[in-house]
Write a protein that binds this DNA or RNA. Structure first.
Lengths: 326, 326
DNA sequence: CTGTTAGCGCCTTCAG
DNA sequence: CTGAAGGCGCTAACAG
């Protein structure tokens, strides 16, 4: 049996308008309000979200689009997004896009259908045309061609920092190992900045930048290291790649960090209280989430917001680099 | 400007009922249907979810309650849940409960408010009284006192298997290390079954079962291993605990798996294509998710369903056990 | 087969 | 300050 506002009104002996008013903090005589509140409790009445949404045209729900939740970086990010949404009375609808742009588009449609109020997205597919600046959308790590609001870590500073940290730790022969996709995204700057810093410091460096999806990683790594056996400092485009590379290095009998030092990017952990997976350039994930949520709320509230926000990165020492020589 | 069904009807020169029918695959003359579909495309019309929900009283949205998404086990589980929901045209609302039963209750309320159609929950708090069997709720790993539908891995078989695998690999002195909470849950059977199997096989075993939250783990481990320095086979209640224990063992100079072999529980990976974190009793996470979704859909559809589903576990070899002696 | 109509539960005027 | 009435966009039942 569904309890509606009508039942409450009858129970309290008032009109439904009055009940609505107490629900929405309208002005109601204190005594009447109490009577209504009691009736609400008595009947265990819950306002129907749909009826509300139909009128007010908003749902207090935000969609988050990520490639997959089954990944420490995205799960941490999602964790914080949910936390901040919660603080603002918003709910989170989760979408594992899996590089399926169809699915991403579906969620974009949902904004128009009033199923969600806005979207926060980490997406690497070509959905530029569907994301216009008129849509309440905050992009992470991804600069769309149109002027869509986005938040990103300072990938450029990260690339530079990675080179500096490796050099500081005595590496002589550096390299970058990563993968790339066709869609433009901010992560490409990691490599660029790393290269330019190597250049500035007059260091040799090599680059292995593979087009994704990477199917034969070990094969490619084998020939890369065969060609450059002297490499002793690696900057991997992210922690996952770093782990893969480390696994490979161990397989071919190289020790990390003794023979080769490795720095990843992201600053991942298994879970909140775990140690870092690898030495890494850590993204300020919590802050990124916080800013993304705040921006989205402002956009939904029709306020003007900064089109781009770049947050600082830091080096976090794990077990894949030596201690700094100072 | 909002496009409604009315606009479409006018554009197509038909009544709104007809438009509704083409939207819901009612019987419409082919020619008329085409005209309507064209109008829909032309106006880029999207049916309003709220208006629909208001009528039909369902939202095609399911809430998932987990302690935290920032954890490989839960993020994998969530990944599969979302996948299966998606296949059934359902959306996922994510709730990091963080052991906050207040928040869990809030989501339970949402079912009553028609904000979600049902709930799948991994919850370790005391919300029994709010979850009645009348609610579309599927519980994972948790047996509520009322007859709530639940899905769980075979924790009992897992405990036995863990003991067998350790013994098979030559361990002489076994132990169980875990934590427990006040709320009843299926994971307690891991310890019980492990103990009884040790008993059956006439093996010595020790137990360190700490009340959660565990604040001084290292401290407790220190005194435990001081008391039992001969332990060479450990069954940890889950992979996270296994990792913590391994970290501790390394700290005190013991090598895993050479000196001590460790088996966890869950079968966690960082992400889809990563190796197992530790040797482990793997839960059939994908199947659990699939079954949970199917059960929930059946419950929502008022069908009768099995009250409990127990799924088989398997041993997966990681790097924390020796090869089997066969 | 198709147009019309009556609500779904709520919020918001608008009188009283 | 409060009750009644209209309508949000849609579906389903009912005539035609």
């Amino acid at each position: 049996m569904k309890i509606t506002i009508k039942d409450v009104a009858k129970q309290a002996g008032v009109g439904i308008g009055t009940v609505s008013r107490v629900l929405n903090n309208g002005s109601v005589k204190k005594e009447t309000r109490e009577r209504v509140e009691q009736a609400i409790r008595l009947l265990n009445y819950k306002p129907n979200t749909y009826a509300r949404g139909l009128k007010s045209n908003h749902t207090n729900t935000v969609a988050l689009i990520i490639p997959t939740i089954w990944h420490p970086f995205f799960s941490e990010f999602t964790y914080y997004i949910e936390t901040f949404l919660e603080k603002n009375g918003l709910k989170l609808l989760l979408c594992n896009a899996n590089h399926n742009s169809e699915k991403e588009r579906e969620y974009i449609q949902m904004v128009k259908q009033n199923k969600v109020d806005g979207i926060i997205g980490i997406t690497y597919s070509h959905i530029d045309q569907y994301v216009s600046s008129s849509l309440p959308f905050v992009s992470i790590d991804r600069h769309f061609s149109e002027d869509v609001v986005y938040v990103t870590a300072d990938n450029e500073a990260g690339g530079i920092l990675a080179a500096q940290e490796l050099i500081k730790r005595g590496c002589q022969s550096l390299c970058f190992i990563g993968g790339h996709q066709t869609a433009i995204n901010e992560t490409k700057k990691r490599r660029q900045a790393f290269e330019s810093e190597c250049h500035n410091q007059n260091r040799d460096y090599y680059v292995l930048d593979m087009p994704e999806p990477i199917l034969d990683l070990d094969h490619q790594l084998t020939s890369f290291f065969k060609k450059h056996p002297d490499i002793d400092g690696i900057f991997a485009i992210n922690d996952t790649m770093a782990l893969d590379v480390i696994r490979f290095l161990n397989k071919i009998g190289k020790s990390v960090p003794k023979d080769v030092q490795v720095i990843g990017f992201d600053g991942q952990k298994h879970s909140e209280h775990s140690p870092y997976l690898v030495s890494s350039i850590a993204q300020p994930i919590e802050t990124m989430a916080k800013v993304a949520v705040e921006l989205l709320i402002d956009i939904i509230g029709k306020k003007d917001v900064a089109q781009r926000t770049i947050l600082p990165v830091t080096f976090v020492a794990g077990k894949t680099t030596l201690n700094k020589e100072e």
